[in-house]
């Protein structure tokens, strides 16, 4: 997982390109070439690349016999899909009603401050963090809620989330 995109030696990088592309083909073959498979295909492909590269969308359009514009239309309609590379950690801050009234905004601000993001920018330059808000994670009883990759953290405060992020960074440093 470490800096997969840029810094890896050529060997590893090339195998990555190929492995991913083979995976795309495997996904298309498994899910089928009908329009109804489009969204599941995009979901799995995004798992693989962590975003949806333009040329892969064109490839999927070709394989499914759809116009690239309509595939682009679907990919840009759903919030789950990203056409830009996402960070290693995708931090979703729930801003559903329950979380909002219990103070999700200060939590969001604390995260952005901690990872150095400002304005409309969602992903850090080092591709470590992507911070976004979601409308409801359905864990309203634990409001406010933050989800980091697939893990949910409940009853967050600006202090608590900062500690969690510190911890993540420490673990990462240990790994490296």
């Amino acid at each position: 997982m470490k800096q997969e995109v840029n810094g890896a030696p050529k060997e590893e990088r090339n195998t990555n390109y190929q492995r991913k592309f083979e995976k795309v083909n495997e996904i298309i073959n498994r899910l089928g070439r009908s329009q109804s498979a489009l969204i599941p295909i995009l979901q799995e492909v995004q798992e693989e690349y962590r975003y949806l590269p333009e040329e892969i969308l064109t490839y999927i359009a070709t394989a499914l016999g759809l116009s690239p514009a309509s595939v682009f239309g679907v990919a840009t309609f759903y919030a789950q899909f990203s056409l830009e590379a996402k960070g290693k950690y995708v931090i979703k801050v729930c801003d559903g009603t329950a979380c909002h009234v219990r103070g999700s905004e200060p939590v969001l601000e604390a995260i952005k401050k901690r990872v150095n993001l400002s304005g409309k920018k969602k992903t850090t330059d080092d591709l470590r963090y992507t911070v976004e808000t979601v409308s409801c994670l359905g864990a309203c009883g634990l409001a406010p809620v933050v989800m980091i990759n697939d893990k949910i953290y409940g009853q967050m405060t600006p202090e608590a989330i900062t500690i969690i992020l510190d911890q993540l960074e420490k673990e990462d440093a240990a790994d490296e």
Binding site: Q35, L42, V74
Partner: peptide, 25 residues
Amino acid sequence: KEGAGAFVCGEETALLASIEGRRGM
């Protein structure tokens, strides 16, 4: 079928469009 993040897909005709692999309108 897993949704892909669009509240409007709770509307039945949009949900069907989404199952069919189209924009959930």
